[in-house]
Write a protein that binds this DNA or RNA. Structure first.
Lengths: 239, 239
DNA sequence: CGTTCCTTTGAATCTTCTCAATAATGGTGG
DNA sequence: CCACCATTATTGAGAAGATTCAAAGGAACG
């Protein structure tokens, strides 16, 4: 396969690329993000709600970028206990964090529109484009940083703090973030398995925030009414 | 600076490099691990117990390999709550997982002998040696995988399971692992802040395992008496 | 040899879980 | 369009696990 090479690929400063809410792929003329190099090689796919993108233990043949919808990455142990590592939204990348086999599975929370890239192609492109390689490394490290933040949440925060942190984080990452309304495409059970709580505690804690007037529980999501109060509830972040 | 280049750098299969207990740097003749490329460029340093290798928020100028001793990576929030992300032992690498600034701090648990590498040098070496770049990526992904395992532990395991898992993991990673004796260079408080428990719960749980005959509490560590039982207590791993 | 830090152990408290019942929601087919 | 079913969410009461508070013993250090 012939792959377009490009000299003088600009090396961006670390951390220069934040998530892009309301992700829209750039045209071929302007390239703000090395990830756009991948764009033309992706296959557009639609995954039905509940379907697996990949399973834990599978060889990592593809990686993905979410264009629309939401995905969960799931770890299961023998006796059925579940930990959801991440919820991924439009614009997020997926499956880049496995060298050999996937160690978590990825499941569609809603109908999902994705771009699929063969891993081998991504690797060879990264070898040619230093900026892409760096960008992918940056992404891995961002995931690690997020994982550390989650570890702090799971190890040291109360149920109320976990819910508040979760809602604020999701609000910040949500693609169409305009007002304070946050869509929750996942079930209470999913939230519980992400935050290390039970369904009942999640439900009760959200209900309590609603009674306080901090949030309002709406259809398929919540609305942040008092961001200050919610932040105060959050228990802070690492450093 | 002149840097030795080497063609025909063999590309190892993913996951081919496990941790090397009782780490001994290879001579210049045989090279089993791409990380040995770094070896000659490292500065040997001794860090006193309790000293910081680096602080959260600092620009990541150096990265390290531990030759002797143990290190903790620490996250702190505003109100003093602490989460220890990892305990690192001889042979482990440190500080490679920060692109711009360190987001955790690293502190010596014991007197520590380390090799220190300037990050810029590591990056330029990685650019020349594909195998080193791949190895470093593999290491980042291993850290992420371990973080996911810890997230499962923090979110879904009981105190007893956390302690059992922790002891087994440490036993497996300990450099001089011969018999069942595991050195614990960290305090109960450190263990608590790693496992999301309190000092008292850690102490009680370890004492209970001692009364069961599963382990024996010895000076500066424990001894595994019944590995089967300890594994059964562990609550399993992801997948 | 005293001080400080770390560890252990006990008792009471509290947060979260478990069990249980009910209500709401969403999708399906008649 | 509505009735039915399965899934999801809410809420209450009691139980359990872990925390907090408190005190005392042990180890490490200068």
């Amino acid at each position: 396969m012939q792959i377009q090479t490009r000299m003088a690929d600009p090396l961006p400063a670390a951390g220069a690329y934040q998530r892009r809410p309301g992700f829209t792929p750039a045209g071929p003329g302007k390239r703000q993000d090395p990830l756009d190099i991948l764009e033309q090689f992706g296959t557009k796919l639609t995954i039905r709600r509940g379907q697996e993108l990949y399973a834990a233990g599978e060889v990592a043949v593809y990686c993905y970028r979410i264009l629309r919808g939401a995905v969960r990455t799931v770890g299961l142990n023998e006796d059925g206990r579940r930990q959801i590592a991440e919820f991924l939204l439009a614009g997020d990348l997926l499956g880049f964090d496995s060298l050999g086999t996937h160690h978590l599975s990825a499941e569609a929370l809603t109908e999902v529109l994705i771009l699929r890239y063969p891993r081998r192609l991504v690797d060879s492109l990264a070898e040619q484009h230093g900026s892409l390689a760096l960008r992918l490394r940056d992404l891995s490290l961002q995931k690690l940083r997020r994982a550390h933040e989650t570890m702090f949440l799971l190890g040291r925060k109360s149920a109320g703090e976990r819910i508040a942190t979760f809602l604020l984080d999701l609000a910040e990452r949500s693609p169409g973030r305009t007002s304070g309304s946050v869509e929750l495409p996942m079930t209470r059970g999913d939230i519980a398995d992400h935050l290390g709580l039970t369904i009942e505690t999640v439900s009760r804690t959200i209900a309590q925030l609603g009674r306080d007037g901090t949030i309002a529980v709406i259809k398929c999501g919540i609305e942040i009414r008092d961001r200050e109060a919610l932040t105060a509830h959050g228990g802070g972040t690492l450093h």
